[in-house]
């Protein structure tokens, strides 16, 4: 067996400035949080959940290099907004689920839910229709106990009757 001599040259190890690495890590976190916040906004829009519109009062500014502390502030503020958004979505989803259960009960036993109303908005749907348990044939239905679940057709006018009749 023949042995060979190899020249092994060690690669110089580059040590990154720890603060630069920290800033890079914070930027990665900010990018991830920005994506999560965007997804939360889209989810809230799709489910007609209000109160998640971006409301920032930060002044307009020029692009600049942020230091570690400033990046942490941006990260923390975004994390707080993501947390608040998710809590709001979860809360709204629970309320919508409860509304759907109520609607199902109205459908199964209309007589026990007389004049109960559930709006499409409460169900997380678009439009201004309202589900309501009403008597069939008006007064006769009330006297006879004939109850049914009906969906109103919603607003006939895009802006509603009130706005249209209001003087300019």
């Amino acid at each position: 067996m023949e042995l060979q001599e190899l020249d092994i040259v060690a690669e110089p190890v580059l040590v990154e400035d720890p603060e630069l690495a920290a800033r890079r890590s914070l930027r990665a976190q900010i990018a991830r949080l920005e994506g999560q916040l965007a997804e939360a906004l889209v989810t809230s829009f799709a489910q007609s959940i209000e109160g998640l519109e971006p409301t920032s009062c930060a002044p307009r500014a020029h692009a600049r290099m942020l230091d570690l502390g400033e990046l942490e502030c941006v990260r923390d503020e975004l994390a707080e907004r993501v947390h608040a958004s998710r809590a709001r979505i979860a809360e709204a989803a629970e309320a919508q689920a409860a509304s759907r259960i109520r609607l199902e009960q109205m459908r199964l036993e209309p007589g026990r839910h007389r004049f109960t109303r559930v709006s499409c908005r409460e169900l997380g749907e678009r439009g201004c229709g309202v589900w309501e348990v009403r008597p069939r044939l008006g007064l006769i239905g009330m006297l006879m106990g004939w109850w049914q679940l009906k969906l109103s057709s919603g607003c006939p006018l895009a802006r509603g009757r009130e706005l249209r009749s209001r003087p300019p």
Partner: peptide
Amino acid sequence: RHVGLDPDVT
């Protein structure tokens, strides 16, 4: 966001 601009403002 990395450069201190709020994309909901600017």
